[in-house]
Design a binder for these strands. Structure first.
Length: 648
RNA sequence: GGCGGCGUAGCUCAGUUGGUCAGAGCAUGCGGCUCAUAUCCGCAGAGUCGGGGGUUCGAAUCCCUCCGCCGCCA
């Protein structure tokens, strides 16, 4: 559209829903985004890389209640998990947005208000089958079951019939504008096959979209009509504008909006390729350039799911092989857009063959020869011969192709090209046989040239892999005694021959030690290990002072009444005697104790915990309990104690 | 049921507008080197390009049909 060179790049991941801990799928999207961001920075662009978490909605309300926390507390915890993983994976995001942040909520409300005034949002009545799990009304065409109910086609659970007052987005008005937009921007949805799906979906006609709920409390209130909350998808999608400064940092927003690429999993394509541009058209924003739907990672050819217990925990792999091997594997194995199959065999094979044998061993053998023949000093090269020139030219051609492929988000193809060059460097050494020349003093100059050339090639490879393997790239440059890091050298400044003779190189360590398959499987699949490593961050001891401890008002409480909270499996509503007052608390102990078990019993509660509403029931305190496999075990006293007694 | 896509060496896949297009990587076998992480380099073998029919001087590449698989929608 704009003819002039665009000097900015704005890339996003979806914001991840905090009802789940991060897994390999989250890692995959985010790694793609990171590689693109790093590459664009090398190009000299101002890059804005946004990721974050989606924290509203019924599912989170529910998940939090089951854990006996407030939704915000649950979100706070899960956010830490995401941030930890991103750090381990060297994700260079610029901002981590949370939809519970004040500026986001305000921004969403403002846009909502704007569309309401414009008439693109109107109030109506909605009746439909609603799936609690998917937080979605079922499509009208889902057939009735024999018993007259409907089953959610996505999750297989039974839906409930709801009628509610609702605000609607006038999506129907945007059918033609969307089709026109797709026609004018064939790259808007990638890969192409997804674009076809989107277009054919829109051609079938679009109905107005219900975008508020009265059944959900944990969400952004509709401005001026707070018994409605804004539907989680309308809320979440707008993170891409609020996270880029809309309504709170005009300069940031001006600089980066519209986004260059929204990376998403193919499951959320419709939201991003249809609803989102329609919302943006309505609000008068320019539209993003590309929505890229990547594929799924399967585990040994089958879909990963919690129920199958085959979800891959990235932490175990990271511990064993480091971030770069995982980043490389995920980006190299499969073109973005297709499904991939993750097997331990495949992973180990690729890491050993590409990273240990091809790349790692090349670095090792080259540097070792410089140590052996030139005492670790980069030699002054002798005259350049045809074969040397060819290697340099091959590099230039490779670099040009790799850049073009990175520009096109074709990461696996880019890596493939780099590896073709890598093979050529290994062949160059095999052809030149520097180890033979080293035995003849009169060949010293020739030897110097060959090793110099090989070092240049290694340095160049280090540069090209930087977006995908930043740590390894830095290690390689560090071995070469470079004063800069590859990430600090702009593409336009990079030159194959910018290697300084006389510099000392460092003694290399194996970049990627070969992995033994059996050992790897043993370590990664050890069942206890997963739990251990997952718990580690939370169990790290952090001291508090006695004064801090004193702030907690721990009291003995006696249970007066207890009842189950309908619709939950874990929650009990308890009336408790605290000596001089009676309180109500919600406790997640119903899987271990029935209401009758607890009446008359005494235990310890934190009396000055900030009250919270859990599943619509106010909780004025929390009881202390041990948790084993998600089940609560309450510590009781071995004799009777007067209610209200302080516990220290 | 509708729309779209796919079916090419043991495996994963490339194959622009029909004419060195029958290919690459991995795996397998053999040979070479020894600087290197039992690494590296070279050579070799198998495919009636899902089946059948058609258009054409000529089709993996276009058309029809059948079989099988996948995606989206219903």
């Amino acid at each position: 559209m704009e003819g002039k060179f665009k000097n900015t790049f704005y890339v996003t991941t979806p914001i991840y829903y905090v009802n789940d801990v991060p897994h390999i799928g989250h890692a995959y999207t985010t790694i793609i985004a990171d590689a693109l961001a790093r590459y664009q920075r090398l190009c000299g662009k101002k890059v804005y890389f946004l990721t974050g978490t989606d924290e509203h909605g019924q599912k989170i309300e529910k998940a939090a209640a089951e854990k006996g926390m407030s939704p915000k507390e649950l979100a706070d915890r899960v956010v830490v998990r995401f941030k930890e993983l991103w750090q381990k994976l060297n994700i260079s995001y610029d901002y981590f947005i949370r939809t519970t942040e004040e500026f986001h909520e305000r921004g969403v409300q403002k846009i909502f208000q704007k569309l309401l005034e414009k008439g693109d949002i109107y109030k109506g009545k909605y009746q439909g089958w609603y799936c609690v799990s998917e937080e979605n009304f079922l499509s009208e065409d889902v057939p009735l079951e024999p018993d007259g109910s409907k089953i959610c086609p996505d999750c297989g659970r039974q839906a409930t019939l709801l009628e509610e007052e609702s605000y609607f987005f006038r999506l129907s008005a945007y059918q033609q504008p969307l089709l026109d937009f797709y026609a004018a921007n064939p790259q808007f949805v990638r890969p192409q096959s997804r674009m076809n799906e989107v277009v054919s979906f829109v051609r079938q006609g679009l109905k107005d979209l219900s975008i508020t709920r009265t059944t959900v409390r944990w969400g952004i209130p509709v401005p001026g009509d707070p018994k409605h909350t804004i539907y989680v998808w309308f809320d979440a999608l707008h993170n891409y504008v609020t996270g880029a400064g809309y309504d709170w940092n005009p300069e940031l927003f001006e600089t980066f909006w519209p986004a260059d690429v929204h990376l998403i999993g193919k499951d959320i394509l419709r939201f991003h390729a249809i609803f989102w541009p329609a919302f943006l058209m309505a609000a008068g924003f320019p539209l993003p350039r590309t929505v890229f739907g990547h594929g799924w990672w399967l585990k040994d050819e089958t879909k990963m799911s919690k129920s199958k217990g085959n979800v891959l925990d990235p932490h175990l792999i990271l511990e064993k092989v480091g971030a770069d091997a995982l980043r490389y594997f995920l980006l190299r194995e499969v073109p973005v857009g297709l499904d991939g199959s993750f097997s331990h065999e495949g992973f180990v094979h690729r890491v050993n063959s590409d990273l240990a044998n091809d790349l790692g061993n090349l670095v090792q053998r080259t540097l070792t020869m410089v140590f052996n023949y030139f005492d670790g000093e980069i030699p002054v090269p002798g005259e350049e011969q045809d074969s040397d020139r060819k290697l340099a030219e091959h590099f230039e051609e490779t670099a040009a192709r790799v850049y073009a492929l990175y520009d096109d988000y074709a990461l696996s193809r880019a890596l493939e090209e780099i590896w073709v060059f890598l093979n050529a460097v290994n062949k160059y050494l095999a052809d030149q046989e520097p180890w033979k020349l080293a035995k003849k003093a009169e060949e010293k100059n020739r030897l110097a040239r060959i090793l110099f050339q090989a070092l240049c090639a290694v340095r160049g490879v280090g540069y090209l892999i930087y977006p995908v393997m930043p740590e390894t790239a830095e290690k390689i440059w560090n071995f070469l005694g470079e004063s800069k890091k590859p990430g600090e050298v702009l593409k336009s400044w990079f030159n194959f021959y910018h290697l300084t003779s006389g510099n000392r190189i460092r003694k290399p360590e194996a970049l990627f030690p070969r992995i033994d398959l059996m050992e790897f499987i043993g370590e990664v699949e050890k069942p206890g290990k997963a739990i251990e490593s997952r718990k580690k961050p939370e169990e790290k001891m952090e001291y508090i002072t006695y004064d801090e401890f004193k702030k907690m008002d721990l009291r003995v409480a006696r249970v007066l009444t207890a009842e189950r909270i309908p619709g939950t499996s874990k929650l009990l509503k308890l009336q408790i005697d605290l000596g001089n007052e009676t309180r109500q608390i919600v406790a997640g102990v119903a899987e271990t104790y029935s209401p009758e078990d607890l009446v008359g019993k005494e235990f310890i509660v934190i009396a000055n915990l900030k009250p919270a509403v859990i599943r619509g029931v106010e909780s004025q305190g929390m009881l202390l309990a041990a948790e084993i496999d998600g089940k609560a075990i309450i510590p009781f006293f071995d004799r009777e104690v007067p209610p209200g007694t302080k516990v220290k």
